[in-house]
Simulated assay, not measured.
Amino acid sequence: MREPVDPADVDEAVFDVVERIPPGRVSTYGAVGRLVGVGPRRVARALSSGGGAVPWYRVLRADGTCAEPVRVRQLALLSAEGVPARDGRVDLSAVGWP
């Protein structure tokens, strides 16, 4: 039987991975989740509830788009780091991490 995982530990693991995404690069909720061992929705929940101290804006949907509530701010922050976006979509094959 597996030991229950403390949600705060999952959040910290997500934050640790997101902090490793280099400036000018992006990752996806799914890629971060695979590194941590959780699903993409759990990554999104961690970032939305307490990810303000990490570069949350470097994490995108699997199709390279931003979550609607933060889309304008996220695209502006990514643009400031030199991440190109076309029609609100980032080319993950060009700037994806890892």
Rank of each mutant, 00 (worst) to 15 (best):
R71G: 04
R86S: 11
R41V: 08
E12C: 06
V54P: 10
G52L: 05
Y57G: 03
P23W: 06
V72A: 14
G24V: 11
Y57E: 07
P98G: 07
V5R: 15
S79L: 09
S48A: 11
D9P: 01
G88A: 03
G64R: 12
A85K: 03
R20L: 10
R20H: 01
G51A: 03
G52P: 07
R86Q: 05
A76H: 10
P23D: 12
L77I: 08
L75A: 04
R61Q: 12
P98R: 14
T65K: 09
D11H: 05
D6N: 15
G30C: 04
L92T: 02
S49E: 14
L35T: 02
G37N: 06
P98D: 09
G30A: 05
D87E: 11
E19R: 15
E81L: 08
R2Q: 13
V90G: 07
A62Q: 05
A31F: 11
E19W: 03
V36W: 05
R58L: 15
P40T: 01
L77C: 06
V10P: 00
V54W: 02
T28D: 06
W56S: 06
A46E: 03
G50D: 15
V5T: 14
G30L: 10
V32M: 01
E81Y: 04
R73P: 02
G33I: 14
D16A: 15
Y29P: 00
A80S: 14
E68T: 15
A31T: 15
V83F: 09
W97L: 01
L35C: 01
A46V: 05
V5P: 01
V54M: 07
P4H: 06
V90D: 12
V18P: 02
E68I: 15
A76M: 09
P4T: 11
A67R: 08
V17P: 01
V18G: 07
L35E: 09
W97S: 00
M1A: 12
P55W: 06
G33W: 15
T28I: 08
